[in-house]
């Protein structure tokens, strides 16, 4: 049964990443009324903000997450020489933007696709957010550019629970490299999981008629939402906040 939720058109505006890479980038936003369950940062694949952001953000909104979305990939000939440090700083800017709306880091989920998935994994080593998911992260075995080495070389133990989703036929994420990455990340203080979908390529998260592709895209989205729901700290409703105050007051008495 399909439930047709009203589609929300994200607002898109240039935002300054002056305290990050120094760039100015378009950022899409969906802000929800009432008491949203949590917030999410969506890091889109290179060049895919316009194509993907609204769909991902509406999907998150259906589960109570308001979100911001951005494409942090280097543009054109990358004259700025964007580095991993720049990318992680840009994520910090976005975490700060959500903080301005009252979201603590533990109430924020980070979801990255492709290039954004690569950035999401790097950011989880820096920040203790609620949860993070990298979907088909690129640049796992191969360098994206001289300034952006392969993830297998630069990934560090993570502070945010991290889920990595991969297509088995993704040539950029060979099984032996994924096994090494998963084993290394398993030593992190935070919980990590790597899931590989058999018989699908790198774009497995886009729905398709072919059975394996459809199953992979459905499962990947389901896992993403469950990963967030199990870890992102929910914002209390006014009644829940009042209940917490009563419990705390009773405990002090």
């Amino acid at each position: 049964m399909d439930i047709a939720f009203p589609r929300i058109e994200p607002s898109v505006a240039e935002d300054s990443f002056r305290h990050g890479s120094g760039r100015s980038l378009p950022v899409a936003r969906i802000e929800l009324g009432g008491v949203p369950r949590g917030a999410a940062i969506v890091l889109c694949d290179a060049g895919a903000l316009e194509r993907d952001a609204a769909g991902f953000m509406n999907g998150l909104a259906e589960h109570g997450y308001e979100s911001v979305a951005v494409d942090l990939s280097p543009t054109g000939g990358d004259p700025t020489g964007t580095t991993d440090r720049d990318l992680v700083s840009d994520v910090a800017v976005l975490v700060g933007r959500l903080g301005e709306r009252g979201w603590s880091p533990a109430q924020v989920g980070l979801v990255g696709y492709g290039f954004g998935g690569r950035t999401a994994l790097l950011a989880t080593a820096e920040f203790a957010l609620g949860a993070a998911v990298s979907i088909a992260p690129s640049g796992v075995a191969d360098a994206w550019s001289d300034a952006l080495p392969p993830l297998i070389q630069v990934a560090r133990h993570v502070r945010t629970p991290w889920l990595g989703l991969f297509g088995q036929q993704d040539p950029g994420a060979p099984a032996d490299v994924l096994a090494r990455l998963g084993s290394y990340l398993g030593g992190s203080p935070a919980h990590t999981e790597v899931v590989t979908y058999p018989g699908v390529a790198r774009d497995f998260y886009r729905d398709a008629r072919e059975t394996l592709a459809h199953v992979a895209s459905f499962d990947a989205w389901q896992r993403t939402i469950e990963w967030l729901d199990r870890r992102v700290v929910p914002r209390p409703t006014p009644l829940a906040a009042e209940w917490q105050r009563r419990v705390a007051s009773a405990a002090r008495a």
């Binding site: 369950r37 700290v233 929910p234 209390p236 409703t237 009644l239 829940a240 009042e242 209940w243």
Partner: peptide, 15 residues
């Protein structure tokens, strides 16, 4: 930590 549509229980509800 969360009850969907908790307004349906009223303010005095013991969670």
């Amino acid at each position: 930590v969360s009850i969907p549509d908790d307004a349906g229980y009223g303010a005095g509800f013991e969670r």
